[in-house]
Structures are given as structure tokens and as C-alpha cells.
Nucleic acid binder design. Structure first.
Lengths: 145, 145
DNA sequence: ATAATAAAAGATATTTTTGTCTTTTATTAT
DNA sequence: ATAATAAAAGACAAAAATATCTTTTATTAT
């Protein structure tokens, strides 16, 4: 088991790729995205449709259409993508899966697990969708395989 | 999506419960465990069978039988349970699900995600199976719902 | 030895996640 | 207006995770 679902992994990779291409002035078709982030094209399409419906990514149909990010969207935190796709369980859930685990009624792992959750929350809130554009353009980072 | 699989959550809760009862000198039947940690009994049985096969938990069949931990097992880290049940992806996997992500070929989240993984690894390696026995006996912690 | 107990093992079922295919709708260029 | 393009939507399929049921095996107490 990975931390994020496949769906969420694909979403994050796609978002970084589209952000980079947006930064370079392009819109990107679903095929190009899927190829570059190594994901199943029709499945990724579903994911991006969902993000699009929620206004997290922009898209236009037709020739020269595709997905892109406007400036406002580029500045959104990655956390918004994760929440849209996987919900907020990762930010708030109990490590042992206990619904009623809380400060006043803690599970054994509560205190230590809170640190993990906080780290994840910090990571996702402090990473904007466009944060890695330059790094990606310069080939500093990988997004496929 | 939670951090750990349902299977793993049940395993961790069960292990803490059995440890506590072991500490009090009892063996515990699968029904009692399932009731106290609020998990489906036959499914939990499968999980404990697996842990038993790997020698992580002790069991005896027949009257007065059940699951328990010997002293050596009580001192094992929770990480061993997680690994047995969910594998080691949570300790080593890339946040974006990239197989070839590494120090030399990092994904955009690599550095930040490493901190998350380290926190999880630390938590699971520094939590022994028997660590919360007294806290559980004194009612300081919850394991059900 | 026998009966009762409880885990182990095997087979099966359901649900969720992941993945695919087809049709429709919107946009653009001609 | 028409044809070409590309996303949106809907229906469907496969795989994995979760859950259940039945039979077998080992142990204990009588």
C-alpha cells in the first residue's frame, strides 16, 4: 500500500506536467499527458474530468484544445488536488482507522501519528501546483515510470 | 484513502489488544479480539493467521487456546506487523508512485516526501507491540470504533 | 479414547479501485 | 456551414481489497 491512491498519484503527476506545459504557453491533450506521466489514458481522462468539473484545472475542447492552468490555478496548493481526488481522510484520519479517535479519546498512535499527518499537510499545503515548473523544464525532476 | 490499508489497521489494533491481554496473562480468542477492536471476525482471522505463520504472533488451538505474545514478540516493533501485512512500500515508496524515483533521479516531491516517510518509519520502528499495555489497561487509550 | 474447543486452511462472495470502450458535446479552422 | 479535433459523459470490464462461510487440524479436559 502506498500513501496515496493510484488515482491521486496520477492526478499529482498530471497536474505537475500540465503546469509545466502551461508555463511554456501550451495546452496539453490527454494523450500527451498520459504518455509523459506514464498512466492509462482513459483512466487519467476521468480524473482530469473530475478536476475540471471542480474548476481546479482548465480545459477547452476542439482543435488546439486541451488542459492547462490559469494563473490563479497555478498558485493553488497540491492539497486541493489531493482533497478533490482522495478526500480529506489523509489530513484528518486516525492512523488505526478509528472514527472516534481524537485528542480527548486518543488511540495509542494518536500523538505520533499526528506528526505524520502534520508533515503531510504541510507538504501538500506548501506545494503549489506550479512550484516545480522551472525544475521540470530544466530536467531536474522526473514524472514518468 | 487512509495511510494504511484496512487490513493493516485491523492488524495493528488487534496486536495492541492481544498484547495488553497477554500482559494480563490471558490468551485471547478471535471473537473476543474482533469484538474489542471492532473488526469483521473472519477477516481478522485471516490476518492473524498470516502473522502467526510468520511467527509474529503466537497461538494455540483447542480449549483455553487463542492468540498471545511471548516476551520476545512483545518487544518487536510495530513496523514488523505493517511490513508483514502491507509490505514495505510505505517505508520506501515514492509519493507520486514513480518506480525509478530516487536521490539521483528524484520526483518533484522527493525531498519533502522523504521527511514524511522518515516520520512514519520512526513511528513504527520506535513503537513496540507491547508499548501501550499499561495505557490500555488504565483506559487511557481506545481501540474500538 | 472422546468430546469440546479454537485456530488453520480453503473456497467463495462482495465491494472498491483501477482501467477500457463508445457516444456525445463543444470548439476551432477551413 | 462543414469537417476535424479534443474533452465530457456514460456504460462496461478487470483486478485488488475486503468480507464470509465451511471444512480440517490441533489441543485440552474429561
Amino acid at each position: 500500500m502506498a500513501i496515496f491512491s493510484k488515482t491521486c498519484e496520477y492526478a499529482m503527476r498530471a497536474v505537475f506536467y500540465v503546469a509545466q506545459r502551461s508555463h511554456e504557453g501550451y495546452r496539453v491533450g490527454i494523450r500527451e499527458i498520459a504518455e509523459h506521466i506514464n498512466s492509462p489514458e482513459p483512466f487519467l481522462a476521468k480524473i482530469l474530468q473530475k478536476l475540471s468539473r471542480e474548476g481546479l484545472i482548465q480545459s477547452v475542447k476542439g482543435p488546439n484544445g486541451g488542459f492547462y492552468f490559469d494563473t490563479a490555478s497555478l498558485n493553488r496548493p497540491l492539497a486541493d488536488i489531493v482533497t478533490a481526488v482522495d478526500g480529506d481522510e489523509i489530513f484528518t484520519g486516525c492512523g488505526l482507522g478509528l472514527t472516534y479517535c481524537s485528542e480527548s479519546n486518543p488511540c495509542p498512535l494518536h500523538d505520533e501519528f499526528k506528526k505524520v499527518r502534520n508533515q503531510i499537510t504541510h507538504m501538500l499545503n506548501n506545494t503549489s501546483i506550479g512550484k516545480f515548473n522551472m525544475g521540470l523544464i530544466k530536467g531536474k525532476f522526473t514524472l514518468n515510470k
